[in-house]
Design a binder for these strands. Structure first.
Length: 274
DNA sequence: GTCCAGGAACTCA
DNA sequence: TGAGTTCATGGA
């Protein structure tokens, strides 16, 4: 077990509810089960940066420290906001302080956000659980029993249309299947994408896939490839921009962290209206 | 029952 | 290039 006292922003519940990841599960007061690749972690957030990791030192250093993006200074990122010239974003960042941009695996992020289109977050989570239970590797759950990893491209490519339909994917079945085949056949090279720092080029490659438009590609860029300047615009962000930035939102002002600010705004606006 | 969802493809002007 | 329509389905 590892006990940490972070000086920087961290709020497990806000991260779990942020809509960037779909497999965090709250199992008790401030305690979450997190599945990342083939690793399963129980993490308890006692507040004020007081964190408890139910794993060994080596696993923490090799897996979780990086996944949780603990080398980034989010307080410094928030300090870029000018309270007077951008009161909405300032309020959002104060209220949603503690959200971090996780370093999820590109493959899981890609499929998760293909699945996400035109659905609410609970429905997305449900499909991803069904898919993982159906085709993901069995992993021992430290708390007892088993859980499932997110399925590999091989495993997904093998599923029949009927299998995929059973996961309540609707018309997205073919998108998921085709993405799996593209990655398997090397038409989409996720390792190469992960090394490519160029936002535009990555977006273009991602959008060559069926079912991947600007929004899904931007989510993949931000949450799967950790391009912190990516700026996904969904129905909520669109409303925010129309309502609070009728004269236009200045992305230049917030480079290279537009993705972080987008995440604050998204969460804040939903907490006000959701 | 109705409306909407972290949209994208397709159609038609 | 742009606006409207369709898609499958669960959650609220």
């Amino acid at each position: 077990m590892i006990r940490l006292k972070l000086q920087d922003d961290f709020d497990a519940k806000r991260i779990a509810d942020s809509g960037q990841c779909f497999r965090w599960k709250e199992t008790g007061e401030g305690r979450f089960r997190v599945i990342h690749g083939r690793n399963v972690l129980y993490l308890t957030d006692h507040g004020e940066g007081d964190l408890e990791f139910e794993c060994g030192e080596e696993e923490y250093r090799k897996i979780w420290h990086d996944y949780l993006d603990l080398d980034e200074d989010y307080a410094a990122v928030r300090a870029m906001i000018d309270k007077d010239s951008d009161p909405f974003l300032y309020a959002a960042s104060c209220n949603e302080k503690g959200i971090r941009i996780l370093r999820q695996y590109p493959w899981e992020a890609l499929i998760s956000f293909i699945i996400s289109q035109n659905r609410n977050i609970p429905a997305i989570k449900h499909s991803i659980e069904l898919l993982s239970d159906m085709a993901g590797e069995e992993l021992p759950d430290p708390a007892g029993g088993i859980c499932h990893a997110f399925p590999t491209p091989q495993a997904l490519a093998k599923l029949s249309d009927e299998d995929l339909t059973q996961c309540r994917l609707g018309y997205r079945c073919s998108y998921v299947k085709e993405a799996a085949v593209s990655v398997l056949e090397g038409k989409i090279d996720l390792d190469a994408l992960a090394k490519d720092p160029d936002d535009e080029r990555c977006l273009e490659t991602l959008m060559s896939m069926k079912g991947v438009g600007m929004k899904v590609a931007s989510c993949m860029l931000l949450y799967g490839l950790h391009h912190m300047d990516a700026f996904p615009v969904d129905v909520w962000v669109k409303r925010i921009l129309e309502e609070h930035y009728p004269g236009g939102y200045d992305r230049e002002r917030y480079r290279p962290y537009n993705g972080v600010f987008q995440q604050y705004m998204f969460a804040y606006y939903r907490s006000l209206h959701g």
